[in-house]
């Protein structure tokens, strides 16, 4: 079962209005894996996540989740199929308190984490459950954005730059959380700019450039491919 593909994206094209941003993205994610999408700013990483989630205004190609084609589905149907997103900028609702934010995504299947387990993973959230969502620190907001998609029973988590703008100690904490989630059996697609962070949590890395996947590097081969990767990322 470990090698079974949970998400298979083939020839995904995407547009914002007239602007063609994805030019045939291909990648796959196996059940239980953590996979990153690496690439420069504007390469199409976030658009790829939005394309998988169905949020991109127009998309073509094939996105199969758990054997089912989702390209013709609405975002809410894709969510109900078992994919959950933690968006860039976190998407915490300011008119909702922490608990309301946490309880917002409806349960779509059995197998989500219990509230107790979530509070074990993120003890800060328990203490601040009555605070307004956007009154939390950046790190806590990120925790909340991840925490709220763990309850729902979704198996595939799309995390868009969860470390962006956070202090190193918080980044480490998020790294530990992602490892813990992997152990719990979640499958994760991570968009990252922070290459060191990506290397510490992922099984494989896809490199995205100009709306296409141009390479795949298993985490074990990362050291051997370091130069190539530096060139891709322009660091």
């Amino acid at each position: 079962m470990r090698d079974e593909s949970l998400l298979t994206v083939k020839g995904l094209n995407g547009w914002y209005g007239e602007s063609h941003v994805l030019h045939g993205i291909d990648f796959e994610v196996r059940r239980g894996e953590v996979v990153t999408l690496l690439g420069r700013n504007g390469a199409g990483k976030t658009s790829t996540l939005l394309g998988v989630m169905g949020i991109l205004p127009r998309r073509e190609g094939s996105v199969r989740y758990d054997g089912v084609e989702t390209i013709g589905l609405q975002p809410r149907q894709i969510a109900r199929a078992g994919i959950a997103i933690c968006p860039e900028e976190r998407g915490i609702f300011s008119s909702l308190n922490v608990e309301e934010n946490l309880m917002l995504p409806p349960r779509i299947a059995e197998g989500g984490l219990s509230l107790e387990r979530i509070f074990e993973l993120f003890p800060n959230l328990k203490e601040r459950r009555r605070s307004q969502g956007t009154k939390l620190s950046g790190g806590e907001q990120q925790m909340l954005a991840i925490a709220r998609i763990l309850r729902t029973g979704a198996q595939l988590l799309l995390l868009d730059e969860p470390t962006e703008g956070l202090a190193p100690v918080i980044v480490q904490q998020i790294g530990r959380t992602i490892s813990a989630l992997k152990k719990e059996g979640f499958t994760i697609v991570l968009v990252e700019q922070n290459f060191r962070f990506a290397a510490s949590v992922a099984d494989r890395h896809y490199v995205v450039e100009q709306g296409k996947v141009i390479d795949m590097i298993p985490n074990a081969d990362l050291a051997a491919n370091n130069e190539k990767l530096q060139a891709y990322l322009g660091v």
């Binding site: 169905g54 949020i55 969510a79 008119s95 409806p106």
Partner: peptide, 12 residues
């Protein structure tokens, strides 16, 4: 009211 797209992406 704040972010209908994200609420939709949660399955609502």
């Amino acid at each position: 009211t704040e972010n209908p797209v994200l609420v939709g992406a949660f399955g609502i």
